[in-house]
Amino acid sequence: MKPLPVTVIGGYLGAGKTSLVNHLLRNADGLRLAVLVNEFGALPIDEDLIVAQDDDIISIAGGCVCCSYGSDMAAALSDLRKLDPAPDHVVLEASGVALPGAIAGSVGLMQGYSMDGVVIVADAETLQANANHKYMGDTVTRQLADADIVVLNKVDLVNDKTRAESEAFARSYAKNAQLLMAEHGALPPEVLLQSFVERNRDSGTGHDTSVFDSVSLSLDSPCDPAALGQLLASEELDLVRAKGFVRDADGAIHAVQSVSRRWSSEAAPEDSPIGLVCIGLKPAFDGDAVARKIAELTG
């Protein structure tokens, strides 16, 4: 069975994790997302999205679901595998005090799951105050350090100065992350979840391009998947995400993917479609330059 990708959404209380998750659900567009929340506090799902609800599971329009996991995350993840139809992607909303890096480490050890990335949501208005909190300050900065992607949320509520300060602050801790600005947690799903990159690539559909741009490459020549993974995750290319399939020198096919500075590759089925999609942030992204650098590697 294909491993089920898991994206961890972390960040301190009030940063906007729930609105970001609801935005993803609204824009799932046929992809079946399973949302795992640490505990049902105030209802984590917008009411108009709910189709049915019982003690253990909330059914959401479009075939998505939401469950809570209490103290046993591994058991909750195992239960998701029993759902029919199976979910395409798991969005795991961590508690406000959790260190998402540790969760990602655990998910990485579980059979049948693959770690997609860690998204940390930070409130542009309160980030620095939270980071100075007597008890929780170091938890807030350690969460940032775990991030592959930082979503600086609620930028509409702050002036330019605060926004710039929060951005610089977040960057100083989130050394390995791409930083995205958002209002109400609204971001194109391709940026946040790998499965959307893959699906849109296969279906040829695209989304909102106001935030990011992308380039598709055919990758005709064989290449070393590890070298490609390293390049995709390099500062030089500065991509948010990349996903594709390549053939190595022996002819075997590998799936290669990256999110910010994290990359992975694994053996893939023979019928996987060769090719690569790279996503970067506007305005810095230069698709031609990315294509050129990858071509240098693949020869």
């Binding site: 209380l13 406000g96 005090v97 260190l99 008890y135 929780m136 170091d138 938890t139 350690r142």
Partner: peptide, 11 residues
């Protein structure tokens, strides 16, 4: 060693 873990928020 890094400081430990919170299992609950102040709120």
């Amino acid at each position: 060693a890094d400081n430990g873990l919170w299992y609950i928020t102040p709120d």
